[in-house]
Amino acid sequence: MPDYGHDLLFGTFVTPSASPAHHAVDLAVAADRAGLDLVTFQDHPYQPRFHDTWTLMSYVASRTERIRLSGNVLSLPLRQPAVLARSAASLDLLSGGRVELGLGAGAFWDAIDAMGGRRLSPAQAVVALEEAIAIMRQIWAADQPGGVHVKGDYYAADGAKRGPAPAHDIGVWIGAYKPKMLALTGKTADGWLPSLPYLPGGPAVLGDLNERIDEAAASAGRSPSDIRRLLNINGRFGDTSTSLLNGPPDQWAEELAGLTLEHGITGFVLATDDEYTTELFAAEVAPATRELVAAERRG
């Protein structure tokens, strides 16, 4: 099975370098011009070499036309969920519905703690993430009656007003690897956003991880296709094929199409800070992958 049937998204994962100040912006603009679907940024508020990711995303949104934006992924522990929900809705309204919300439960707890953030165990952080998502979804559901009420162990909202409603249904995408996070992804997320280099055993383990998400989705009464599977990828273009995503664009297209058809991956986010690579990915890999997938899906 699993090809969950979503249309394909292609994007980049750009280092949010603070210096030079516009480096990341220029790369995002290049991705937009090249016709990619998505530009994403990692979020490490304790890393002074990086821009604040939300501020960078807001600025990039105002300098681009079509491309969608997401954190990849936003570090929840240093962001207030109710404020983040309104910020996301605001940017979605300003950008005409181009914002998706990639979220992580948090890592680098020493650095979070040094910034004045709360230190949680991994298990606690999963619960906190679930509570935060509940708050955010209630804020976005502006047409529902009553205030926002979530009485969590780590986050609470007690009668906060709902709204503003975003311009489109903002996707909550979760960076998940471990069973609890995968279960949460299946239970509540709109997308799964792991990184290929962090998968022990490479693409082969995608099947198992997908299954865990699918099971959790089923127990929550959801369909596995409610969760888009995205993947951060690394690679290099070259004349000759040396390994996975190391070779010419047509090799990439075949490999990515394989990941779609075998493992249901329908969002490919390439880590690159190079304009030429961005353009090649958009111009040669994306259309060829789409064609291969479409041909196969037509059967």
């Binding site: 939300w54 949104a61 605001s90 940017l91």
Partner: peptide, 20 residues
């Protein structure tokens, strides 16, 4: 006024305006 749902988030809006 982050608790005011009739408003856009000020920081997000200011940043958007910086780009415009």
């Amino acid at each position: 006024h982050p608790y005011q749902p009739a408003h856009l988030d000020a920081w997000t809006l200011l940043t958007w305006l910086a780009g415009r």
